[in-house]
Write a protein that binds this DNA or RNA. Structure first.
Length: 920
RNA sequence: GCUCGAAUGGUGGAAUGGUAGACACGAGGGACUUAAAAUCCCUUGGCUAUUGCGGCCGUGCGGGUUCGAGUCCCGCUUCGAGCACCA
């Protein structure tokens, strides 16, 4: 019987579904293993062949762990809120929920065809009220907590309030946005509204005036990780800076723990590095400069305290509060004109023209170490959001300060011996200090590193400043002016935000007539009827961003139907955290930071037992498209084959890869493809039309999208699974090229034939045992290292050898079927039942272990060399020890004569590998 | 600019410091067939040699360590990724 993948695969998929073979329950008597995929956003385009790569990899690992006796949690769900569905709704008026539901159904049918071992009883959708109840709940908890430096964790806000009532801000250890100062009496005298506003300074979820990335085209605010080079990640629209009153999450309070946590988890170095960059810890000093003639000090942050003697001016960010305080009446007009100019530039414009701009405020600051007066300027190269929004400028040793000094003709004082600053600044942190001697501190002659330390020590001892650690990581902006997201469980009473009682969660997303802002410019929820509490208080109009729902979803899978908690303590203490997480790198600075933050917060509250959510993380590479081209001779409808294209003046045209096979164009299908090609002519080579190709992003416009459904239909899911793994290393990006798939398909046919030859209870030959045990050893090691491509190769070798050996022994063929089950579950299951006549499913079998006894060689062939030059091969019994092998090598024919009169200096013997003899 | 990673045949890619190119595709040759498809067998890094045995070169470039380097170290080149007026 032929190998019929269609019949086999649909039958087994049906069987698994009906008997709930992959259903999993917590079982304390067995060790757990949690394998998770990054759940997809169900887009309208459906899955292409690149999407399942990571899913297949995790499925193999999940099945492997299961065969090893672990209780494996392997769930799937959908990140269902998001902009594309809403943009589509704006265009068509169709409810995003409808689009989303349809897309999910499409995704599900595509996933089902590939034969994954997901427990679909645990499916979650972030837009499901039963799910987002817990997103809203977590937000409320963040509102009700603040971060305490003394305990280094989140604490209830009541604890902070008690402190403020008793001591004001004295000895306060809460992490806040601003450094507020007031006494207990002052606190008690505040109105409720003032108290609420003040507490926002410390709450982990807080309302704040922050500079946000505003995208006018999308009509919403975006998080930093949703913006790339001044354009929105979704849509690519310009983004500008705008001051808005928004919900934010105090992620920055967790910066140090997010950094430290990286040490404990098994992620790739590059991903950890990306997160370290994003967190951006920098150690430096905060210093105060007096403003001449005013009772005011400018606070600045610097990592180069050693360059204090080279400070020749100060610069403030345009948004800095200091600006209005230090601007003199004479300069007022110029400064205001400048601020206005800066405000109207978008982030993108600022980046495109890197012109140096700025304006003098009219005031001077006093260098605390030299007593000299230096001018205070304003420029947009200083960022308001980092450090204190003010810097001391050292043009000799900072390229940005240098450019500024050159433009406005400010003095440049070199501070490092031998540094030539006539053309450019000297930014390196090395060399000996010069010109750095003042009345109270002398740094001359010190190495830069020592000078930094010396200055830091000096300024803190003398009250000029203090040692300070700054992070680049900002708080996450948590409001979106959109419809298709989780509503905030918040209402406003006399302008004060209040949390809805937990019993009223989830607060369901209301229906609206149009998915657009209101005439007044309010977010879409402003259109909802009766969007208020029972007592008539207005509800929040913003919704939560995409990352809200994806930040704790992995916890929900542990206990997806629990109505009383995000996850029960029992379920959580059994499943703990994700042992293996597979997904793309694109989430490195978004989801993977927010999840870690969210998890650490829940950990602080005692709601989860693990401090890090994802123990091991693998990034699968992107599958790129492989586009095909036909070459049209200019101004004709004649196409010339790739090998001849240089003889003509041609324009390459993208051809649908689905009408090309092994780069040979099906010319009839091409003519039928589009009307304008109906009467196309072809210039062939060897009777064929050969297409050119290039690697590009897989997208509709390139006509290089390959749908997994088509591959499954033609070759089967098992072939697709094996081929995706065979393409190359999992973590590497690579183009999809259907050309090689026949090889994998041939392997499955050969495998089928091997079992079709019959299975009996005969004693296996030593050769077959060796073949099998080599495979067990190889595949087990490979799976542990996610080296799936070499595993597939090992299977091919094994089946070829067993076929040549005419092996029919159950002792060999049974373990082989089990080994293959994670990779190609359908055919493995079929062989398990039909050829091996088992009643149970192969999913319940046990992973075989290899027996080294079967791998032992009777003879070993050593390459023997003298002085590293290979001379001959020597085949000897494997039992021979080092001395015997070397003696045999030296006595071998030819060798003995060659060695005459020479002295052996050293012998190198690698057991089973090589013999090398060094002579003089 | 800073940080990280990569570079091996016509192609995708294998190689705990130990015979580089596993496995697969493609290509060429052959068997079977009226023919095609399917299947099977052989060849396939380059140069050179050939009746046969062979020989030399070869993992981006230049050095180094080592008996021995694709692999380790130093210095480049190119490509990819992340961060980027972050003081």
């Amino acid at each position: 019987m032929e190998y019929n993948h269609r019949e086999i695969e649909s039958r087994w998929q049906q069987y698994w579904k009906e008997r709930e073979v992959y259903k999993v329950e917590a079982d304390p008597s067995r060790p757990k293993f949690y394998v998770l995929d990054m759940f997809p956003y169900p887009s309208g385009a459906g899955l292409h062949v690149g999407h399942p790569l990571g899913y297949i990899a995790s499925d193999i690992y999940a099945r492997y762990k299961r065969l090893q006796g672990f209780n494996v949690l392997h769930p799937m769900g959908y990140d269902a809120y998001g902009l594309p569905a809403e943009q589509y709704a704006i265009q068509t008026g169709q409810h995003p929920e409808k689009t989303t539901t349809e897309n999910i159904a499409r995704y599900r049918s595509q996933l089902d065809k590939i034969g994954f071992c997901y427990d679909w009883n645990r499916e979650i959708k972030t837009c499901d009220p039963e799910f987002y109840k817990w997103t809203q709940w977590a937000f409320q908890q963040m509102f009700k907590h603040y971060y305490d430096k003394s305990t280094d964790k989140a604490e209830p806000i009541e604890k902070l309030i008690a402190h403020l009532e008793a001591h004001g801000t004295e000895n306060l250890t809460a992490v806040g946005g601003k450094e507020l100062e007031f006494t207990a009496e002052e606190w008690q005298a505040l109105t409720d509204k003032e108290k609420s506003d003040a507490l926002m300074n410390w709450r982990i979820a807080y309302l704040g005036h922050t500079m946000v990335n505003w995208c006018p085209k999308l009509g919403t605010v975006l998080a930093n990780d949703e913006v790339c080079e001044g354009l929105s990640l979704r849509g690519g629209y310009p983004v500008e800076q705008k001051l808005m009153y928004q919900w934010c999450l105090r992620v920055s309070a967790y910066a140090q723990r997010l950094l430290d946590g990286l040490e404990k988890i098994d992620w790739t170095d590059s991903l950890k590095e990306t997160q370290r960059n994003w967190i951006g810890r920098s150690e430096g000093a905060e210093m105060r400069f007096k403003v001449a003639g005013q009772d005011l000090e400018l606070e600045i942050f610097t990592t180069r305290a050693d360059t204090i003697f080279g400070v020749t001016f100060m610069v403030l960010a345009p948004e800095s509060a200091y600006v209005s305080q230090v601007t003199t009446p004479e300069q007022k007009e110029a400064v205001e004109a400048y601020l206005n100019e800066v405000k109207h530039k978008t982030e993108r414009e600022r980046m495109i023209d890197k012109k140096v701009t700025g304006v003098f405020t009219g005031s001077y600051a006093v260098n605390p170490l030299t007593g000299k007066e230096i001018p205070i300027w304003v420029s947009d190269y200083v960022l308001a959001g980092y450090g204190t929004g003010a810097i001391m400028a050292v043009p000799a040793h900072d390229s940005r300060d240098y450019a500024f000094a050159k433009k406005f003709d400010l003095p440049i004082i070199p501070l490092i011996e031998g540094a030539d600053v006539s053309e450019q600044s000297f930014d390196a942190k090395s060399g000996k200090m010069i010109n750095s001697c003042g009345p109270i501190l002398d740094l001359n002659g010190l190495e830069v590193k020592d000078a930094i330390a010396r200055t830091k020590q000096f300024i803190s001892e003398n009250g000029i400043g203090k040692v300070k650690v700054n992070f680049r990581l900002r708080d996450a902006i948590f409001s979106r002016q959109r419809y298709w997201g989780e509503p905030f469980p918040v209402y406003y009473k006399e302008g004060i935000p209040h949390m809805l009682p937990e019993s009223e969660l989830p607060l369901q997303l209301p229906e609206i007539d149009q998915y657009l802002p209101t005439e007044k410019g309010e977010p879409p929820l402003g259109r909802a009827k009766n969007w208020q509490t029972a007592d008539g208080y207005p509800l929040e109009l913003n919704t939560m961003p995409g990352f809200a729902g994806s930040s704790a979803y992995y916890l929900r899978y542990m206990d997806p139907h629990n109505d009383n908690a995000l996850v029960s303590p029992e379920a959580n203490s059994y499943w703990r955290n994700v042992d293996l997480y597979i997904g793309g790198t694109e989430h490195a600075t978004g989801h993977l930071i927010y999840s870690r933050f969210w998890n650490k917060f829940l950990f602080d509250l005692g709601k989860v037992v693990e401090d890090e959510p994802f123990r091991k993380l693998i990034n699968q590479g992107m599958i790129q498209g492989r586009s095909n081209f036909a070459y049209r001779i200019k101004d004709t409808n004649t196409f010339v084959s790739a090998g001849l294209k240089n003889q003509y003046d041609v324009t390459p045209i993208h051809v649908d890869v689905n009408i090309v096979n092994n780069d040979i164009l099906d010319t009839e299908k091409f003519r039928a493809w589009r009307p304008e090609f109906n009467n196309a002519e072809f210039v062939l080579e060897d009777g064929k039309y050969v297409c050119g190709w290039a690697v590009e992003k897989m997208s509709k416009s390139m006509f290089n999208v390959v749908n997994p459904d088509d591959i499954v239909d033609r070759y089967g899911a098992d072939t697709l699974r094996l081929y995706e793994m065979f393409l190359g290393p999992l973590e590497q990006s690579k183009p999809w090229d259907t050309n090689g798939i026949d090889g994998v398909n041939r392997f499955l046919k050969k495998l089928w034939k091997l079992y079709e030859g019959g299975v009996d209870n005969s004693e296996p030959s030593a050769a077959s045992l060796k073949t099998l045990h080599t495979l067990i050893k190889k595949v087990t090691a490979d799976i542990e290292q996610f080296s799936y491509n070499t595993s597939v190769a090992a299977f091919m070798i094994c089946v070829n050898e067993l076929t040549a050996q005419k092996c029919q022994s159950r002792t060999i063929l049974e373990p082989l079927a089990i080994l293959l089950a994670p990779f190609a579950p359908h055919i493995a299951e079929e062989l398990w039942h039909s050829a091996l006549s088992h009643e149970t499913t192969v999913c319940d079998a046990h992973w075989p272990t290899y027996d080294p006894a079967h791998l032992v060689e009777n003879e070993v062939t050593y390459p023997v060399s003298f002085n590293g030059k290979m001379r001959f091969n020597l085949t000897l019994p494997a039992s021979m020890g080092k001395d015997d092998v070397i003696a045999a090598a030296m006595n071998a024919e030819g060798a003995a004569k060659w060695l005459e009169g020479k002295q052996v200096v050293k012998t190198i013997f690698v057991p089973g590998k090589i013999v090398n003899i060094v002579v003089k």
